[in-house]
C-alpha cells in the first residue's frame, strides 16, 4: 500500500433507538478494525444493525457509545475521506451523468472538475455518457455512475450499502468483478454491507457476520483465496458452508440466503 490512510476502528460501540419510549438496542459492543486498503464485507440478516453500523461509519448517525475512528480520529459527521454508494443509485434526475459525478466537487475549478469527471466515467466504463440523464440509463449503468460519483472525491474509504442489491443476477456478478477491478486499481479501503454470501466471499478479505437483536458481531471469517476468485472452487464452497453454518443454514438448504 502506498499509504496507511483509510484505517477504520470501531471500539466497544453500542447504539440504541427509542421505540415507544423504550430503548431498543440496535448494536451491542461492536469491535472491528478494517486495515487500510482492505475489502471487508458485513453480512447479516435484516435488522442486525449492519446498515446502522455503516451509517455510523459514514457519520450520519452520531448518538452512540464507544468509539468510531478513522486513522485514529473520531468520526464527526460525513467527510470527504469517505465515499458512499447506496442501494438505490440516488442520482439526481435533473442533473446529467457528468453533473451527477461532479456533485461533490463543488470547490474545484471547472477544468479540474471536468478532468475528474472524465477520469472517473472512464474508470467505470461510461465515457461518452456525461450528457445523458439518469432516466436513460439501465440499473447497472446508474450504479456505475453512483460509484464514479463516490470515487470522484477521492475517498480513503468507500462505503457500500448493498450497492448491487437491486440488480439482476447476471448484472450483479458482472458488477462484482467491476468492483474488484476498481478496488485493485484505486487501492482504497472498501467496506460493503450485503446479504449475498457469494458476493461477500467473492469480494472480501474478511467477512464480518452479524446477528440480530441486539446486533453483535458473531464471527469474522478470513477469505484467504487468490484473486480473481472462482465461485465454483472447492475452497469457495467450503468458506460458503462455513458462513452458512453461522446462520444455521447447513447443507440441507444449500440455496438459501440469510433473510
Amino acid at each position: 500500500m502506498p499509504n496507511n490512510k483509510g484505517t477504520l476502528q470501531i471500539r466497544n460501540l453500542s447504539k440504541s433507538f427509542i421505540v415507544d419510549n423504550n430503548p431498543l438496542q440496535i448494536l451491542n459492543d461492536i469491535n472491528l478494525t478494517v486495515h487500510s486498503g482492505a475489502f471487508v464485507t458485513i453480512v447479516g440478516s435484516s435488522g442486525c444493525g449492519k446498515t446502522t453500523l455503516l451509517r455510523i461509519m459514514l457519520g450520519l448517525e452520531n448518538h452512540y457509545t464507544g468509539e468510531a475512528l478513522i486513522d485514529g480520529k473520531q468520526i464527526i459527521g460525513p467527510g470527504s475521506d469517505r465515499g458512499i454508494v447506496f442501494q438505490d443509485h440516488r442520482l439526481l434526475p435533473w442533473l446529467t451523468v457528468g453533473e451527477n459525478v461532479a456533485f461533490g466537487l463543488d470547490k474545484l475549478k471547472r477544468k479540474e472538475k471536468k478532468l475528474l469527471v472524465d477520469e472517473h466515467l472512464k474508470l467505470v466504463g461510461l465515457n461518452g455518457f456525461e450528457s445523458a440523464y439518469p432516466s436513460q440509463l439501465s440499473g447497472g449503468m446508474a450504479q456505475r455512475v453512483a460509484i464514479a460519483r463516490a470515487l470522484a472525491s477521492k475517498p480513503e474509504i468507500l462505503l457500500l450499502d448493498e450497492p448491487l442489491g437491486a440488480l439482476d443476477a447476471l448484472t450483479r456478478m458482472y458488477m462484482q468483478q467491476e468492483l474488484e477491478r476498481l478496488w485493485l486499481l484505486e487501492k482504497i479501503t472498501m467496506i460493503m454491507v450485503t446479504h449475498d454470501i457469494d458476493e461477500a466471499i467473492y469480494l472480501s478479505d474478511k467477512v464480518v457476520i452479524m446477528s440480530s437483536r441486539p446486533g453483535v458481531i458473531k464471527k469474522i471469517i478470513d477469505v484467504p483465496l487468490s484473486r480473481p476468485r472462482d465461485r465454483a472452487s472447492s475452497d469457495f464452497t467450503r468458506i460458503k458452508a462455513e458462513i452458512l453454518e453461522e446462520f444455521h443454514l447447513g447443507t440441507e438448504y444449500p440455496f438459501a440466503y440469510a433473510i
Binding site: P78, I84, R90, D106
Partner: peptide, 16 residues
C-alpha cells in the same frame, strides 16, 4: 429524504 441524506453526506447546507 434520500436526496437530503445525499446532500448531508457531501456537507451541503443552507443556501447551497
Amino acid at each position: 429524504r434520500e436526496y437530503l441524506e445525499l446532500a448531508s453526506v457531501y456537507g451541503f447546507k443552507g443556501l447551497t
